[in-house]
Design a binder for these strands. Structure first.
Lengths: 339, 339
DNA sequence: CTGTTAGCGCGTTCAT
DNA sequence: ATGAACGCGCTAACAG
């Protein structure tokens, strides 16, 4: 572990000039520049970033928090955030919160202690929570941006898919293809963006068709996961046969598919199913899933850009357009449906 | 951004004692301890870890490299590595290599420059490669451990599933249930652990049954992904109808399932299919996949333990037991099979 | 028990 | 164009 001093000594120059050439700054003439570089290479010199950060009073790592890294959606988010960060010579420290607010708190606390240059957080599926730690982040002047969701009682830049639009497009398509009784399986907290905005789009589509959704079209699930999708769909089916079941994400949709199949009904012939996200395995299953694709690379790019944007406003709300992806899990229904 | 000096001044003590109480070290008596803690809280003091690392000459972050974070297998690895690292108060910087050796090199280079305390790498699917960067890691005295695979020409501790055993168990089960012509779809580099060890188990099972595999039972695929699984399986089917197709991971198995279905044959009635890993969606699809589960939490735990083990030997090769998971994609076959 | 001092490795003024 | 000196925030060794 050679130090800058070693390099300087070996090159026969002072630490100061050695520092200049190592950082490629103007000043030293080419001849000495070569000498220093040669010495550095021979000594296998690698700058100590702790010392560098301390002296420069800046850091080159940003923190990313996600709720569930085993979900390919967040895997994809992570991949692209990492990629765009790398282009700015920034490292990425990752921590997973398991969708728990307390854990999220302590992760963020660690981030600010580590002196990260910025924080990107995909928050828990709650609409609001204790924001003390987030205020700490502000006080420490460290930029933060939310992706995929946000807290209603804390103002910070965020980049999300236009969830409402996505649900609108999907619902529109379903109504146009003869579906009338469409059930929507959402998360528990109806005020969380993952639910609220999607429900808005859902209802808007019905409104535009001068139609009314089923009286109990919105079904809340304890968690937005496979198990919940399976259970709630089972319950729905037991009480009747809707034209379609749509969910707030793809894994829930897979759960619904399973429930329908086990009940003896078929997808899409008896009941159409659609999800949200377009995670990899959505297209891989035997009955490829109709879904709403989120443009993850764009989301990641916008988030990183926002983090490094100096005129980063508190109220920025970037929306990325979704894309309806029609596959095999939905199918046109006759209009004379059962009621 | 209050500093230790500020806290000391406000508490009316020296920097030295302030440091002691902040770090919970013995010395200061309880009364002064409280005073300092109170001052720290009021100033919202947060230690600067760059300065701390510099002074202590140590770091509290370890680097993790994976090839593909969108694959739930690595998502799971990441989750548990992060979890076990957190218990040791270590942060995790993550980078994804996209299964490219050059990228992997530069990631590791960044890690050593960052002064990480250790490195865990899930390497590319190659059996060997230029190991210069890995030697640099050794020279910098930073511990490194490989998971899920390794390079044959570089000696370092590693923790892997007992791949051979897993394939052996699976093949055994298939032969016992009447399968004779089993095809094995593997990666391109037959010497890579992902292929070599699994093939060994495959052949060993045949040997123990005094049986012979099909003359061209081993099929190499350009990449171990869905597309390759699909294509190679299609080719296999066109040349005849084997009893089963097994692959080195689950996504390839899904590709094979798709190919079989498109050819008009049925899984498992006509051809059994089995994968490896037991990623989440393996059990979620309409025909739940028979597979070999890797004990990921154990792998992660062993890897970080190894990283922090002082007597970490160069040749350590930790093997975690796999578990055969029989589901619906395999089914007993009649022994009078077609040839 | 507590204060003082000397670095950790590097960036950055200032002179020269 | 280059060198000397100081400081970043904190820890550690030594006095007292």
């Amino acid at each position: 572990m050679a130090t800058l001093k070693d390099v300087a000594r070996k090159a026969g120059v002072s630490e100061g000039t050695a520092s200049l050439v190592i950082n490629g700054k103007a000043g030293p003439k080419n001849t000495t520049r070569e000498i220093v570089l040669k010495a550095a290479k021979e000594l296998r010199y690698v700058p100590n970033s702790a010392a560098r950060n301390l002296a420069r009073k800046e850091s080159t790592t940003v923190g990313l928090v996600v709720t569930d890294i085993e979900n390919p959606f967040f895997g994809s988010i992570t991949r692209y955030v990492n990629q765009f960060l790398a282009r700015k010579d920034q490292s990425m420290v990752l921590s997973v919160s398991n969708d728990d607010a307390k854990t999220e708190d302590s992760i963020i606390r660690n981030f600010i202690q580590q002196g990260v240059r910025g924080i990107i957080v995909a928050p828990t599926q709650l609409s609001r929570r204790n924001t003390a730690i987030l205020k700490d982040v502000h006080e420490h002047r460290i930029p933060i941006v939310f992706i995929s969701s946000y807290y209603k009682d804390f103002s910070a830049p965020r980049v999300l898919t236009d969830y409402s639009q996505g649900s609108y497009d999907l619902t529109n398509y379903l109504i146009d293809t003869g579906h009338r009784d469409i059930r929507f399986l959402v998360s528990h907290d109806l005020d969380a963006p993952i639910a609220r905005e999607r429900i808005d789009g859902f209802l808007r589509a019905y409104g535009d068709h001068s139609a009314m959704p089923h009286g109990r079209a919105i079904h809340r699930c304890p968690h937005p996961d496979f198990e919940s999708g399976y259970r709630e769909a089972s319950r729905v089916i037991k009480d009747g046969k809707p034209d379609a079941i749509v969910t707030v994400n793809d894994v829930m949709a897979l759960g619904a598919k399973r429930a329908i199949k086990e009940s003896g009904l078929r997808v899409p012939d008896d009941i159409s199913v659609a999800g949200y996200d377009d995670v990899v395995f959505a297209s891989l299953s035997e009955i490829p899933l109709t879904t709403v694709r989120q443009n993850i690379p764009e989301i990641a790019r916008a988030a990183v850009d926002l983090l490094f944007s100096p005129e980063l406003q508190n109220g920025v709300d970037v929306r990325i357009a979704p894309e309806l992806v029609v596959r095999k899990s939905t199918k046109a229904k006759n209009t004379h449906h059962s009621r």
